[in-house]
């Protein structure tokens, strides 16, 4: 990972920038949303592999910074939503795609299903993913 950051730096012009855009673990919120508004149903559980990936990414950038390759210009958090029409579709997706990273606990799934069933007909379910974007300036060597 650190080698890749050096390789990227090699291909950047002297005034170039590196954008690090990625989700960060924070027990993402599960919500039911409709034309009437949204309600929180609970939170996903971060699995160890996902937490380890985050730690490795932050560590790599710290290492690149300490070696004088990049200097942080700015950083911002924002939400990135995944939407499904039904709770069962959300559950299926998580079991197929996020099985190593996030766990949808049974109580959260039941609460989501309950809120969705009693909400307006246009209700959908969503996960609020915490995103981090960091802009790094290439440092002159």
């Amino acid at each position: 990972m650190v080698h890749a950051l050096d390789e990227i730096r090699r291909t950047l012009k002297p005034n170039g920038i590196l954008i690090d855009l990625r989700p960060v673990e924070s027990n993402w919120s599960v919500e039911v949303v409709s034309s009437a508004g949204w309600q929180a149903a609970g939170r996903l559980s971060d699995l160890p592999a996902a937490v380890a990936d985050d730690e490795a990414a932050f560590k790599a950038m710290r290492e690149a910074e300490s070696r004088g390759w990049y200097i942080k210009r700015e950083e911002e958090e924002f939400a990135f939503f995944y939407y499904w029409d039904t709770p069962s579709e959300m559950k299926e997706f998580m079991e197929d795609e996020w099985e190593d990273f996030e766990k949808l606990e049974e109580d959260v799934y039941k609460k989501t299903s309950s809120l969705w069933a009693s909400a307006n007909a246009d209700a959908r379910v969503r996960v609020r993913v915490k995103m981090l974007i960091t802009i790094w300036d290439k440092r002159w060597s």
């Binding site: 890749a4 390789e7 990227i8 090699r10 291909t11 950047l12 005034n15 170039g16 954008i19 855009l21």
Partner: peptide, 22 residues
């Protein structure tokens, strides 16, 4: 390709994006 071996000469790009990939 991957970022560990980028087949471009030095100082080619203005912007590099790690898109959900670090």
């Amino acid at each position: 390709a991957s970022a560990s071996n980028i087949p471009f000469s030095k100082e080619t790009f203005d912007i590099a994006i790690l898109a959900w990939s670090l």
